[in-house]
Design a protein around this nucleic acid. Structure first.
Lengths: 344, 344
DNA sequence: TTGTATGCGTTATCAA
DNA sequence: TTGATAACGCATACAA
């Protein structure tokens, strides 16, 4: 304020702070941003005082250029309005906060081409890491995602993917197959004999794994998967698929397994709108255990995925130097609620 | 690859591209990143080819240091796992994508102190703008948010807040009061006479406005607000408050207005868990119209807030040069569903 | 421990 | 139109 050389329209720089404190740029840098603390207490105080007075905030971009890497982690999700990704992002954000990183978020809209473009753009930030939460499909490879990721990794960036992926990529293990198998077995044990699976398009690994797992578990328990229908990953896709299924005729006592809770909830609405009842008439199960599943009646039977924890782990995978690649997958738990009453 | 001076572990720089193309740094910069296009076509092509070959991606940090501002918009939300903020963020992300901006997200956890810290940290990115979606409370001012925002604005950053705020701040108008009043009037018209309001802590403007509006509308229609209870903004807060209300005794035919859908849904669960029924016994209404409200039965009566659009507008407010400060607030629409059946 | 000087990848000014 | 070159704000190797 007393310094006429500084205009109000420019944020205080480290230079300003150093001058104000009467020390060198290097010293100011060390006390304010440096990690190795070797500055005399008197200087330290003066610099701090000057920084406070000037309202100094380190210019992260400049820091990043100087250091060659930014304190950023980029998160790619299919749709941030989807509670699945919301909870996941929540865990990522928490971890980032702990690690002193800023989270940059990008929406793929489940478009592989778009995803590649986004990765390319995000690379420009030179983020510490890239977390891919979006469903990886075979199409992605066709769209040229792999080389982009490799380039990023080659430059010192860390790529973390949910579920397993090939290449030089860390991944947070999540055994969709086992979880779905446990669900299928449990429901077979409850007496269900006929099931329809509403999945996403073929090639989406999460969907494929869950379908295969459920079929295995349900079949192993004596049930039969009558049909596998392909829809999308959204609530509306679930609803529409549900409507179609009902039009084609769905016998009483049939179990419909939606590939995710969001889809399952869409199916439930379709069932109700068709005048059928959930549970004794048409049973519905999902996967993920999003909050809504607890609040609807009957409650949605599902497999609990610790999404927040999953996001947090993904972030740790970016940050941790000694990351254990062979860690145990996060525990999945079958939760039976009213949407699949015991069938005698 | 054929160039031995470039190691694999370093991303291609503009310098590399220029050298590869046999042009100057300046020229390369102009064709690749500059806006004013005045480069000979032959050069342009050569530069592009070189960039493609080398897999060049502009270093956004360096760009930001040079330009003094980053192509970033920072978004502050209370909780990204909350569908309210999820949808909002979705709109922001869409707008950012259109404007060529990257979205940085930070979670305030509804902690004013934390919010101030975050704003401070985000300022370091020198983002183009800052969108405050978190509920602004009077405490914020006490925690010193205002000076931080002013400093940001003084340095050319744009602050956008949801709802109205004081100072040199753009805001996306949202008439919570009017929306809640319309809801109250409508419900009074349906025959409800006694209501309890479950709000958030005093000082949270969104909550205060909705409470006041509802009271006005409901009272104007001949109803009486029996009680105003203070809880939180979460589903669990709604649930707990609901439990307490029921324990204290809630007469049949009472209408409970939750300050947001999330809260209202918590209340509904509490009502059901207490063995009471939603609708004819205890009626419940919310605000926001999140997706879940459509999928539960009975459906949740609410006020529809175009959240995605709200987020998009917030981003436009950051970007647009000719922003109309006096634009009409987004239209809010009362949606009556089964949770508030007509009462004769 | 402190300061000087150089570099980080871009942009932008100013000559050519 | 194109090309040197000086910023941009900060980190850091090296010298003092």
């Amino acid at each position: 304020m007393s310094d006429p050389t500084r205009t109000t329209r420019t944020a205080a720089t480290l230079h300003d702070v150093a001058r104000e404190a009467g020390v060198s740029l290097a010293t100011a840098s060390r006390v304010l941003n440096g990690s190795t603390r070797k500055v005399a207490e008197s200087y330290r105080e003066r610099v701090q005082a000057a920084a406070d007075k000037l309202g100094y905030t380190a210019n992260l971009s400049a820091q990043a250029t100087a250091r060659g890497t930014a304190a950023i982690v980029a998160l790619l999700v299919a749709d941030i309005a989807d509670p699945y990704f919301g909870q996941l992002a929540s865990g990522v954000a928490r971890g980032a906060d702990e690690a002193g990183l800023v989270v940059t978020i990008a929406i793929t809209e489940r478009d592989p081409q778009r995803e590649v473009r986004l990765v390319r753009a995000l690379r420009g930030q030179r983020p510490r890491g890239l977390i891919l939460a979006a469903s990886r499909t075979d199409e992605n490879d066709a769209a040229g995602l792999a080389p982009e990721l490799e380039a990023f990794a080659a430059n010192g960036g860390r790529v973390v993917a949910l579920g397993r992926v090939a290449g030089d990529i860390r991944s947070v293990p999540l055994d969709n197959h086992a979880g779905a198998a446990a669900l299928g077995a449990r429901l077979a044990g409850l007496g269900y004999r006929d099931a329809v699976i509403v999945g996403a398009a073929e090639g989406i690994r999460t969907s494929d794994d869950r379908i295969a797992g459920f079929a295995a578990g349900f079949g192993g328990g004596g049930g039969t998967v009558r049909e596998i229908v392909r829809g999308g990953f959204t609530r509306d896709a679930g609803y529409e698929t549900g409507v179609r299924l009902l039009e084609d005729g769905l016998a009483e006592g049939t179990l419909v397994f939606g590939i995710s809770d969001v889809v399952a909830i869409g199916i439930m609405s379709a069932v109700r709108d068709a005048g059928r009842s959930i549970g004794d008439d048409i049973a519905v199960a999902g996967f993920d255990d999003i909050a809504t599943g607890r609040d609807i009646r009957p409650g949605l039977t599902t497999v609990r995925v610790p999404l927040e924890e999953l996001g947090h782990r993904a972030l740790r995978a970016v940050v941790d130097e000694d990351w254990d690649a062979d860690q145990a997958p996060l525990p999945l738990e079958v939760i039976v609620r009213g949407s699949t009453p015991p069938r005698s």
